[in-house]
Each structure stands twice: as C-alpha cells, then as structure tokens.
C-alpha cells in the first residue's frame, strides 16, 4: 500500500475545513481525502482550530433564542432518533480500482470508456479530454487521459490548474504522480506532463480560467 505523496496545498485543505473553499475544488480535495489518511488528519486539525474560533465567537444577548428553543419542542418530539443502520463494509481489496466517493457518485459516466467511440476528444496523439464537461462554482471539471509516454501538448492557462490521478501514473519536471496524488500548477507555469504507466493515466482535471493549447511556435491553436 502506498499512500499519496503529492497533496493539495494547505490553502485548499484549510479552506475545505473552514468551509471557505467552493464546491468545485472541494470535490477534488474531498476525493483526495478518500485516498489520503494524512490529509484527513490535517483537515481534522484545521477543523479543530475552526471549532476553537467558533467557541470564541462573542455572544451578545440574542433576544428571541429562548422562543426558538420553545418552538423546537414540537420538532424534537416529531423527530425520533434514526436507528443505526450498519452498512456492510466491503473488503478494501474489492475497491482498489474503484474511484472513491464523493467523485464516484458525481461522475456522469465511467472513467475508462473506450476512446474510439467519440466520447473522448483527442487533443494530440494519445492524449484526450473527456467529452463531458461540468462547471461547479466557476471551476471547469473534466477528465484528462494520457496513454503511456504520450506528452500533453504545450498549453497555457490563465488561472490555477489542478490534477488528481484516478488511474495509472504520469510524470512532469516536478515529479511523478500516481493514484491519489495531486498536481497543482499556478497560472503561467510551464509544465510538461506525460503518461508514465503501462495503462492509460486518467486524471480529474480542474481549471479556473481558460485553457489554450499552443503550436510548436508557442502560438495559440
């Protein structure tokens, strides 16, 4: 078992813990958390810090709260405690190739559909973007797929780009990334990702701004 080696920045983990992070990036952070016990603990620590700040909020006299408590009486009576439902936990081994929640339930289709039936958009030989695209709180979300050793063509992005590996592995000049790892590229950085596993590498791909692919001379395509 190898745990992830590349994690989201604290800005994202802290924002996720405090509730400041918006839904799009939270989807990637939360899915990384499913892979990463280390970041789960980190988020729990940040939640505890927020919990302390919550406890320290000043509480001037708020008129009407007693009335609210009285009004809740009926609600409480009508809301019996739900019975504990023990859900069977399958062996982790069966889940090894399963995309974890919350992403699994959110994805519109399986991540490894064939690349030859028009569902994937080939942007260069051996590199595809998913045909589907969703926007969540201003962040564009797709899948990026790289065949073994296929390089992602040069591109420019005007804002942050985030990748989370869901299948296989890729590498760039900063390191190599396998399942559960997060790569974060700030705007205008140069990076050259390339598939690095025998099977296709499939990543969740988040982009805040526009993505512009460049030709050999660096001009927009």
């Amino acid at each position: 078992m190898t745990l992830p080696l590349h994690h989201p920045d604290d800005r994202h983990l802290f924002g996720y813990a405090s509730g400041q992070e918006r839904a799009g990036k939270s989807l990637l952070v939360a899915t990384h958390l499913a892979y990463c016990p280390d970041c789960r603990r980190r988020v729990a620590s940040f939640e505890a810090l927020c919990g302390n700040w919550f406890e320290e909020l000043p509480c001037p006299d708020h008129d009407g709260l007693d009335g609210l408590l009285d009004r809740m009486d009926g609600l409480l009576a009508g809301s019996p405690m739900p019975a504990e439902v023990a859900r069977p936990r399958q062996a982790a081994a069966t889940g090894e190739r399963l995309v974890p929640e919350p992403l699994r339930g959110w994805l519109p289709e399986a991540i490894d559909t064939p690349t030859d039936d028009g569902r994937w958009q080939e942007i260069s030989k051996g590199v595809w973007l998913s045909g589907w695209e969703r926007t969540l709180s201003g962040t564009t979300i797709r899948l990026l797929r790289m065949a073994s050793d296929a390089p992602v063509p040069a591109h420019r992005h005007t804002a942050d780009e985030l990748l989370l590996v869901l299948r296989g592995a890729f590498s760039d000049e900063y390191g190599s990334y396998s399942v559960g790892d997060v790569a974060h590229y700030v705007a205008a950085t140069d990076h050259h990702a390339r598939g690095a596993s025998e099977e296709d590498c499939i990543c969740l791909f988040l982009l805040d701004g526009d993505l512009i692919f460049l030709d050999e001379d660096g001009n927009s395509l």
Partner: peptide
C-alpha cells in the same frame, strides 16, 4: 452549494490501517 465529502463506508476509501 453542495459540500462534497468522503464516505467513511466507501470500500474505495483508503483506511489509515492500510
């Protein structure tokens, strides 16, 4: 907005015990 969160019962979740 929704707030995406991992599901502790998810078989695909990597437990710390691994």
């Amino acid at each position: 907005e929704m707030r995406p969160a991992p599901d502790p019962d998810d078989p695909a979740m990597t437990p710390a015990s691994l």
